[in-house]
Design a protein around this nucleic acid. Sequence first.
DNA 1: CATGAATGAGTATTCATTCAT
DNA 2: AATGAATGAATACTCATTCAT
Lengths: 224, 224, 224, 224
Amino acid sequence: MTQSDGPIGNLEGMEAVRAARIEWRLGQILSAATKLLSEQGFQKMLITDLAREAGVSVGTIYQYVNTKEDILLLVVNDIIESYRREVPAAMEGIEDPVERLAAGFSAYCLVVDSHRTGALLAYQESKSMSRVGRERLMQLEVETNSYFSDCIRDGVRTGKFVPVDPAVVSATLTMMAHMWALKHWYLSAMFDVNSYTRNQLSLITKALVAVEFQNGYAHLVDHI
Amino acid sequence: MTQSDGPIGNLEGMEAVRAARIEWRLGQILSAATKLLSEQGFQKMLITDLAREAGVSVGTIYQYVNTKEDILLLVVNDIIESYRREVPAAMEGIEDPVERLAAGFSAYCLVVDSHRTGALLAYQESKSMSRVGRERLMQLEVETNSYFSDCIRDGVRTGKFVPVDPAVVSATLTMMAHMWALKHWYLSAMFDVNSYTRNQLSLITKALVAVEFQNGYAHLVDHI
Amino acid sequence: MTQSDGPIGNLEGMEAVRAARIEWRLGQILSAATKLLSEQGFQKMLITDLAREAGVSVGTIYQYVNTKEDILLLVVNDIIESYRREVPAAMEGIEDPVERLAAGFSAYCLVVDSHRTGALLAYQESKSMSRVGRERLMQLEVETNSYFSDCIRDGVRTGKFVPVDPAVVSATLTMMAHMWALKHWYLSAMFDVNSYTRNQLSLITKALVAVEFQNGYAHLVDHI
Amino acid sequence: MTQSDGPIGNLEGMEAVRAARIEWRLGQILSAATKLLSEQGFQKMLITDLAREAGVSVGTIYQYVNTKEDILLLVVNDIIESYRREVPAAMEGIEDPVERLAAGFSAYCLVVDSHRTGALLAYQESKSMSRVGRERLMQLEVETNSYFSDCIRDGVRTGKFVPVDPAVVSATLTMMAHMWALKHWYLSAMFDVNSYTRNQLSLITKALVAVEFQNGYAHLVDHI
DNA sequence: CATGAATGAGTATTCATTCAT
DNA sequence: AATGAATGAATACTCATTCAT
């Protein structure tokens, strides 16, 4: 590490430096883009303004992305990666389907809350994406749905849940999480993420859990 | 109708003709815009293409709207008017809060289904609207929510509903109706509007109706 | 005149009526155009606004003129006709070249004053005219110049005037009259037409009249 | 110049380069605009054509001006700056009011001659300017007038000039200089700037200078 | 004759992207 | 690698003119 690397240099080290710079630049661009996208939307966000906000030149941005749309994908991708990382991790190792679903839903809501702009983008800017970008997004939403629907199917099979259609319910849970971003203008006056999450979990529990097991999940249910 | 109109002409009649023409033209523009907006989004919809699609000239469009944004408002307004017309009408005269809520929700879903493009626009193109257009939209959503929340509060008071927060629940119902448009790409493979509506009503009923009354609403509940 | 004209009508009378109507309509258009042109200029004057101002429909205007430019020519022509009518009439029958020139200049200034808008138009809107319109204007200005230059030549020949170039001087007199319109924003705070005219005549007299005749024209000279 | 500039570069030098480029570009645009404006007028001059004439792209023009009107102001400003530079400089240090006035007038005529298009623009395109542009123009004409009127007042006080109204006379002198541009189509067939200037100076001298001093300014007076 | 709704060619302005330095 | 000046295709909106009623 500390020894001289010679005139040709430590190739691996240079690669690492390069990768780190790329990471760093993309991070700059990502956070500047997130700010501007939430304020102005994709069409009104100018590359010029983005460059100023990120503290780099226009040319530099194009060294890291190929088109303006790539910047959108950068932001959307960021939240999707968070879903894939956080949601399964939260559900991991929990046997009881009710608790597992609750843990997954809570994790999902927390990711939405910490990436509100990105969560909205999928709804607001899908028309700004290419066909492939759009389809990838749908594909990933189906993937997330499956974490929930597997769990629901499991609960229905074991009798913890009343018989429901796992597809609608999982989609509805996803929607409820997104709702925190979509209706934040309305909900944030009354709730924070945690109270919102508990409130919706309460509804979900009452709707899904079989009567004979309801008492066991009182800790998930809000009593207003 | 049968009397002579005199030399100056039938002024009232001329006004009526004018109003009818305006109505007709706006209808042409509205349906052409609805088509193009759903295909391409607001930014990519060119006035030139809209004119061709509507079968009129560019100049004619600008005789009926002042800016491109007005065309967006035209479409959004159309669905909003449908909500205001259909939802209260469907709830009118129904005493029982559960039945009333179900009727309102069903009506809402049907309106969404028949105006899917317009329903999406509020989510996709809000950044293309002026501040006033956006605020008007929020205002009207709050209004629709109140139809539901009044009903829920009523049900909670009379003990038909378990205690819930009317604000979240009504917002969630609205969201569930919008969900039919937002996730149509996913849901339409499994459901039509009616089965979707019943499915969600089934969840809602289980979540909201107090246990001792659940049996009375079996007709609202899907048994898969 | 008073007898019935039968079904075919009095053709001559009808012609007269038609001519009178044309006259009347052109008068309406002329005065509306004069107003709007002075307020907004040619390019910003819309035919639609002109129609409203004149109290007729757009179509009616086009029944009396062929193009928008014709409306400009209408106004310009109006002032030119006034020059041709008033200036020679004022100079008519005056023998003395100094008095004749003074009479012509005064008449010219009065016409400019009563048609200020039209007088400006030749300077402001020449680029809005076709080549022929522009050339006709120049031609007519040369004609007016000649009233003055003939008179000056006459005065120089008889020794009343010092030797000067009739072309520059006559053009300068024309310019001084136009100046009342061109610099009205500046001059009107200090003068009315008459005092302005006397002031300029005073200068002209001192510049042109031979010293030995100066005393005879004291009535033309302002003593401040 | 010779010292090393260090890693950050010569910031002052970069600023200077930038300023020089702006100067150069504005010069390109100015001369192209002057040409097209004189040929076609403001309304008919297209930005597209201007770009071609200037040898740059449309986008580049908009990097140096904000609106089409700014281009007009660029040209008008150019001549106004010349007046302010040349006229006082020419009058500077000349004691005798007659000689001083003659020097100022000559300088003014030369500026008009070398910027004929710009001089016309103030008359032709004032309606194309914003209120502030127009008012600035008037303000600056009043300023130029004051160079002359101060001089005239001086001459009247010392008895070199006959009593005249300095305001009208100075305005008339300004007008006479502008006249070389306004009536160039007529005057250029007979004169060049110098002979025109002498001719008018000759008139002015005869009109203003008191009889007892006239002989001293024979060199200003044309004897045809 | 009068009307005024319909037309559509014409144009200023924007902004993602490039590339010489 | 970074810069930012230059590019030019793309597009909303205007308004003189027409013509069916």
